[in-house]
Simulated scan of single mutants.
Amino acid sequence: MTALGDLIGIDDRTVLVLGRELDFAHDQPDVGNALVHRAGDTLVLVDTGVTTAFRAALRTAADRVGPWSRVLVLTTHGHPDHVGNNDLADELADELGVPAEHYVPARDLDQMRDPDSYWARSFERIAWAAPLPAPALAARVVSLFTPMRPFAATTRTYEERPLELIRTGSHRFTGWTFADGAVRVLRSQGHCAGHVIVHLRDCGVLHLSDEGNGACGAMYDADQLKIQTVLGAVAGLFEEGEAAILTDGHTFALRRGAEAVSHLDGLLEQATALQEAALGLTGGGGPIVPSAFAARYAQAMTELGVGGANPNPVFTAMMALNALGELGLRPEPAAEADAPWSRPALHRPHSTDPHRPGDSGAESGAAPGETV
């Protein structure tokens, strides 16, 4: 049984600090796992979670992996369960009089500045599944994550640095390197718009953060193709021995070698099985009512044994809408959140040019002047 702030030692300079699950009914925010690592003389924090208890655990881990004379805080994405203690970069640096840096994804800046609007935008799409109106539910959720200090005096965006081509084995990524290449920040952008993953070269840890939160992303800015692409690329790193230990934002364990590959393959298999199930639920050809589809989609998830971080009806409904979008359906113009979705009509372009699709000769397969 794990508890918030438990430390899992990976080696003498790397510690995984464990978060916890969301318990909305008891006003308990979820907390994303964080990594604390020393690369040479640099203390590296990958995410900072939230709550004062987690902050204390980060400080304990920082003492354990010392000594260090620089501080580098890397934010994987802007969700509140990962950014609440980001000002720890300043605190640690000021106490020892050492330089500090903190980097965040540029595409997540808006949600970090105004999390209420970000979450309201996600919740308003599934008003029929939400226990409160979207603005009220967003404010209620965000209020759980305290204290919230997502910015430090040294905060900059990754994108202010020159983008690098990072070669790891046979794989190619774009991103940024730190500590003479020992810390690699790789762009992924699947779980949300700005998401990155982090590879700690010397200890072989690949931190997936929230890209592995189940078979289908839930947020409105999730990209299913990017999620699946990064899962496959990371599996390749483990198969080639370029990474040795897989960690993520919400699984309270380490996965090594073949176990990591099996886990990643399992997520991809779940994604394909869930897409097949969703396709079967939309196969009638008529408009799809989101609330009815979401109920059947949730049943399919149960039957397939597909889960993810923080499973609940609200997040499942958000996943269901993303699944409809991935299948090519779009909401019909209407004011109601539960308005039907359907596939856009396919219209053949009108043309009087006999050489272009749309004229009778082209449709029959005959060239001008020919008969078939």
Rank of each mutant, 00 (worst) to 15 (best):
L329S: 06
A61G: 13
S69N: 15
V104Q: 04
F145S: 00
R348H: 09
A339V: 12
T371K: 03
R13I: 02
G66T: 03
L327Q: 05
E370Q: 12
G285I: 08
P80N: 14
L72P: 11
A271K: 04
M301L: 14
A62E: 07
L346F: 11
G214A: 07
G66D: 06
S364I: 02
A367H: 13
R356W: 14
K226Q: 11
V196L: 12
V31N: 11
Q270W: 11
L144Q: 09
V205Y: 02
L132H: 04
H199Y: 08
S170M: 05
D27E: 13
T14M: 06
D202W: 06
E363H: 15
S360R: 14
L43Y: 01
A134T: 08
N213C: 14
G365K: 04
G40T: 05
V142W: 03
A34R: 01
L7Q: 14
T168M: 13
W68A: 15
A215Y: 11
Q299C: 03
L43K: 03
N213I: 07
E211C: 05
R20Q: 09
T146P: 06
M219E: 15
L74W: 00
L225T: 09
V198F: 13
D110Y: 09
R255W: 15
P162C: 03
A152D: 06
S262E: 15
R59Q: 14
A278C: 07
I245P: 02
R149W: 04
M148E: 08
F252W: 07
T154P: 04
F315Y: 09
R70F: 15
